[in-house]
Design a protein around this nucleic acid. Structure first.
Lengths: 234, 234
DNA sequence: CGAGGCCTTGAGCCGGCTCAAGTTCGGTGG
DNA sequence: CCACCGAACTTGAGCCGGCTCAAGGCCTCG
């Protein structure tokens, strides 16, 4: 399924990787980077492709270079909860011993770096800094999850939608300019399943926010913030 | 506020600590344990006491020896969400750089071991195994949080209550026998705030479960499972 | 035995859900 | 280029699970 985009010039991809400085590879020596570049450099991921599957052991850790991904948990009866979205710089499958509680699916074509868990374990013995990276990543994941819990547990439909838009704005920051225009890489159903709302409720809530002037426009996957947005979200 | 229960026989407390084998201290040498025992052995915590406060930097990591604790997040308007409960063997304040997103309060008198973050950082340089402990702890925390997200996002009031009871049963397992009788160390309001329900709805749901025979009895903080319990929870 | 938490119960309401059309849009083939 | 199709999204009408407001019961502690 996966296409491998490694090239003859083995260190090339890592050299130009704009994620590298933020990621586990920052800890490694040039020689090691060369090895990595040869064996596991950027893999292309196609839309809809699952990198991790719920209930399966995940053999690899992925560092996201580009694209966005959804973390899906299915209940036995078919209900679907999205536990998070993943963006460039994030990891997929970090510290996942045992069966994965989620499926990770690409929302759009993207690139990832793939490390086998065994290789990573070995590597992190020699470079304890890698463990620090993993720890700090785990910490931010946990903070995100806690925020999500508060949103799901205590907020109304309108507040949920605004929280989500804020999150998307932050996730994209540094890539797009802060133009107040947000591109949503996921379908409405994904957003609804993330927020614990029904599709129809989400749609109606977006319409209401537009009508109220909090959002300037809502057109398919593009949303523009309105005048009131900053005020309402605090 | 905190009483320190260290004694003259400095290594004593660690020697009899039944958490030690599961915790970061398992990695340390006898000499180091002696130092720890002298400087930071078991602190008594009183009911209601906050070990970590939302919005403040937390200087310490606590290893829970006994007692149970709630993690509370307050919204600006006073709404309260409980993001989790903490039991013996768990950590409080792990990997918390920056302001804590939660307050950790004791539900009952208990004991904790306190490590300053600085000391821990230094210690974990010498003993990389400590980082592994922290990582594996972070992983289970994250898994719990994800489970919580699914409960909040997709489950009905009845399912939420059953999920909670299952969680409490598991948390206590190995301490009480699996008698099908659960002691709940927290108030109804705490449970409601954990499950994203109103106090009244929780109370009514418990009454309904008892009436249906899923629960044999519900009396204050004691709940007994009924015949149907295993069937219903799957 | 009275006061004050904490928990339960009751009655009515409402936000978000359900079911059911309708609309928009990108893709595909004629 | 348009006609058609299916998927994604929006909109409408009515309903219901959980919320609100309010009262009452039951402990514990003074």
């Amino acid at each position: 399924m996966e296409q491998c985009s490694k090239s003859g010039a083995s260190a090339h991809f890592c050299a130009i990787c704009d994620i590298r400085s933020k990621s586990i590879c920052a800890e490694m020596t040039d020689e090691e980077i060369r090895i990595i570049s040869r064996t596991m450099a950027h893999h292309a991921v196609s839309e809809g492709q699952a990198l991790i599957t719920q209930g399966e052991i995940c053999e690899y850790l992925y560092v996201v270079i580009s694209g966005s991904y959804r973390l899906v948990t299915l209940l036995p009866d078919g209900r679907r909860q999205i536990t998070g979205f993943v963006f460039p710089g994030d990891f997929l499958g970090a510290g996942a011993t045992g069966e994965s509680p989620v499926t990770a699916e690409a929302l759009e074509p993207g690139l990832v770096c793939r490390f086998s868990q065994d290789f990573l374990a070995e590597m992190s013995q020699r470079h304890p800094g890698i463990k620090d990276r993993l720890l700090s990543r785990a910490e931010t994941e946990l903070t995100r999850a806690r925020t999500h819990i508060v949103v799901l547990g205590k907020q109304t439909a309108e507040e949920k939608v605004l929280s989500f838009l804020q999150l998307m704005e932050q996730a994209r920051r540094g890539r797009d300019r802060a133009t107040g225009r947000i591109y949503l890489p996921m379908a409405r159903q994904d957003i609804a399943d993330y927020l614990g709302l029904r599709l129809e409720t989400l749609s109606r809530t977006l319409a209401a926010l537009k009508k109220a002037g909090t959002l300037a426009s809502v057109s398919g996957r593009f949303v523009e913030m309105g005048e009131r947005f900053e005020i309402v979200t605090g």
